[in-house]
Design a protein around this nucleic acid. Sequence first.
DNA 1: CGACACATTGACCAGACTCAAAGCTAGTGG
DNA 2: CCACTAGCTTTGAGTCTGGTCAATGTGTCG
Lengths: 246, 246
Amino acid sequence: MTSTAKLLIRKLESIGHLTDRERRGVADLTMVTRELASGREIVPDGSTPAHCCLLIEGWACRYKTLQDGQRQILSFHIPGDIPDLQSLHLKVMDHSLTSVTDCTAAFIPHEHIRTLVAEHPGLGGLLWRDTLIDAAIFREWMVNIGRRTALERAAHLFCEMYVRMTAIALAGESKFPLPLTQADLSDALGISAVHTNRTLQHMRSLGLISLRSRELHILDWDGLKALAGFDPTYLHLNVGTEAILG
Amino acid sequence: MTSTAKLLIRKLESIGHLTDRERRGVADLTMVTRELASGREIVPDGSTPAHCCLLIEGWACRYKTLQDGQRQILSFHIPGDIPDLQSLHLKVMDHSLTSVTDCTAAFIPHEHIRTLVAEHPGLGGLLWRDTLIDAAIFREWMVNIGRRTALERAAHLFCEMYVRMTAIALAGESKFPLPLTQADLSDALGISAVHTNRTLQHMRSLGLISLRSRELHILDWDGLKALAGFDPTYLHLNVGTEAILG
DNA sequence: CGACACATTGACCAGACTCAAAGCTAGTGG
DNA sequence: CCACTAGCTTTGAGTCTGGTCAATGTGTCG
């Protein structure tokens, strides 16, 4: 079994259960792996993709651009995610998918996923569930952007990414790689770049985090959670995060 | 065939295609219809529902409440919608569902939906698609709340609801019932109630809309669309809206 | 050593918030 | 049929979070 298939199986097991037969079905998927430089558009807004993209290494994000050039980032994606799974049932992309860092990604033809789902209805349910969790994260981001202050928003995003990185074993002891510029953070949080800078300084001055050379150290997890009002229920995770969520 | 089944079939046909056999499958679903007073919690945050709710008449909304009592409305729902379809694959509700007006709703046991989907994979795909459109609307709302001014946000919401109401034939000639208080609008747009009031006055003074006794008249559709930067692609609709979207 | 991308700072501005007080309006009961 | 209420809308005044513009640091890499 390829390491890519293992990654996908591990991801699916973090949100549900697989039978041996389903595991074999996933392992038999045909995928084409590609390396992508950072800042590269993977799936453009308005396109009609025929593949889904499984992120193997690196970060990606989805975003929309307004007429006046403003950008809103809709989600960040980390290894194991399939950021454009929705394209299986929505012909036209209503946003773009771009690499944030250098990435490795596997491309799986829609047809193969459809066949897989037809043969393994349980896998269909699990992939459906994955898109529903995607939507649950959108909902929480709406609350974040709509009702929290800039400081709370940033804290909430850091909590979320820490838990998600922990779930795929990419976070260390109270720290994880956060390969985002302040401009990226701004576009995700719905604030200006200048204000993001000041917000981060504020958060540092509160002793909650330290952020240097693209690595975020969480100095006060309880404080950060409390500030953000973070409740991980919306991530609908099964496993792997008990230690930090206890 | 009951009128409720007809409504559901019509809704599904607005986002995809049904075979005769699938249509019969839907018609055979068991549903319990209930009347609900306005402001009634239908599915509470944190609960683990065993049914899905098909809205037959009236409006509903989903929202999250923060510790400090602030509320963010996540979506509005109109007849034909199944606002808690995600509960089929997400055990625990991460938000609440409430009636906005007096409503009629049909409740369908999860088990029946699962059986239906097992027997009609095409219907499964269509329901999946419905939840993906739900998510697409969340994405657009994120952009709305994160990157548009209060005036633009309100304009965008009005455009969206007009198109959705038109798709289910509940909008009139440039007008439709909008049974929301200014407080509801505020919580959906992420602004304060006072500012919503001033924003509506501004929009009226621009000659774009008139809003009286819960009915919204669109006086300048092109102007409203332009102000909002409204592009209905994200609604992923099939039919019924050509006239206004042309 | 430049060049470029990113982070930081200062000064000033504005959109949106809060608090508090009036107006409306559709029901309700007398 | 009218007074009363409750819920909603409107207005005013003062404040503040976060935006804009423009300049200056800092760090990395060829």
